[in-house]
């Protein structure tokens, strides 16, 4: 039975809730911005211009990292709940970490480097 030293879960539990609240608010804001601002007009040009703005890039980066944390931390919780073999658990948790980091990097590159095709703001 591994107990005690260094194997907490307090931060994961706490931040899961913080990220959950952020995601709930961010999703509502996202829904409103996408479907109700600009009289509900959704075109590639409008979305692309928004995504080119540094403030929106910052918001989207926060959205990206918190969504990845929330989802992949959920995977890790399920693994800790149900996988009893220590080595299998280690492999699965490592895979979740690798997948989370790769997705985070991919999303980060996409958001940071995105520019409106054929012109700036």
């Amino acid at each position: 039975m591994e107990r005690g030293i260094g194997s907490s879960g307090a931060f994961a539990w706490f931040f899961q809730r913080i990220s959950g609240i952020f995601l709930l608010l961010a999703l509502l804001a996202h829904f409103w911005v996408l479907h109700y601002s600009n009289d509900g007009e959704v075109t590639f040009q409008i979305v692309a211009q928004r995504l080119s703005h540094p403030l929106w890039k910052t918001i989207d980066l926060a959205f990206l990292f918190l969504a990845i944390f929330h989802g992949f931390n959920g995977f890790i919780m399920v693994i800790h709940d149900y996988v009893r073999w220590k080595n299998v658990r280690l492999v699965l948790v490592s895979l979740v970490w690798v997948a989370g980091i790769l997705l985070g990097l991919l999303g980060m590159i996409t958001i940071i480097t995105f520019q409106v095709p054929g012109g700036g703001l």
Binding site: R3, A10, W13, M77
Partner: peptide, 14 residues
């Protein structure tokens, strides 16, 4: 705390 704040402690309660 070491017994409560643990993978098999409080945080397994959902």
């Amino acid at each position: 705390l070491p017994m409560l704040d643990n993978k098999h402690g409080l945080w397994r309660c959902h």
